[in-house]
Amino acid sequence: MSDLSVESAPSVRTRMRSERMQRLKRNKLLYLMIIPGLLFFIVFKYIPMYGLIISFQDYKPHLGITGSEWVGWMHFDRLFHDPMFWTIFKNTLLLFLLNILIFFPIPIILALMLNELRLEWFKRTVQTIVYIPHFMSWVIIVSISFVMLTQDGGIINDLLAYFGFTKINFLMSEDWFRPIYILQVIWREAGWGTIIYLAAMAAIDPQQYEAARMDGASRFRQVWHVTLPAIRSVIVVLLILKIGDVLELGFEHVYLLLNAMNREVAEIFDTYVYTAGLRQGQFSYSTAVGFFKSFVGLILVMMANWLSKKFGEEGVY
């Protein structure tokens, strides 16, 4: 028994290896084309990870990574005892949940609606119009909102005043920060997010719709029973990817909205890393904060992937 396995295992392995070699040979050009992408990830994603070392050091630029003193978990310890930590953690997670619960379904709904449009030129026009905001920088979007929402002559507050309501302090209130944040995200990204869904919908076999119609399915039933199941795996993959960006809430966006009056709800990990690291020169500490953030992100992705496999979907790895 044991003899057998000892004998057979290498032969199986060699066969597999030779098969793999053959496949490699056959598609060598395709594999060659991966190289630039691989290089990109190695150079810009993996090599920089070397810098994470400084989160365990008392990093002094002139001493460099090799010469700085090791301090173990000191910076993480400080982070978990930082009175701001739980505020930041809560703010980050809340914005993330808003992103998943409110923003994520919107491109799907929009794509479904666009998919149902019969006039081709109308559909294309609408599509183009909803894409455009994606190409605007956050600076512009936040500035436009600022001009519209300000109490000193902003159009929305002027309208409120005209109809006899009291003016609302949108820009400097803790209550309005999150709604404004998510509305801006929706305005900028919803249209762009439809692209992949629309592509997935275009790939659905029209015969399925014909069959559904024959069975007397209404438009809504067709959407429910044909379109949605067909794009389900796309939705799941995109959801996992979205969760991967969990804590990438857009530094620029939040930083622009942040001010003294809403810091309690608006300070997130990204803005905190910026203030602590670049503005105050605490390089090791801010690296530790960033490291922790990425770690949480990794755990969430793994959880989402595991869940999706549990439910019989494919997952991203």
Binding site: L29, L32, M33, I35, L39, F40, V43
Partner: peptide, 21 residues
């Protein structure tokens, strides 16, 4: 066709290197 592809790949990887350099 083969050579063309190979050239493309090389050009791409070169441009990546150039960026780093």
């Amino acid at each position: 066709k083969k050579w063309f592809l190979l050239l493309c790949v090389m050009a791409l990887s070169l441009s990546v290197f150039a960026g780093c350099a």
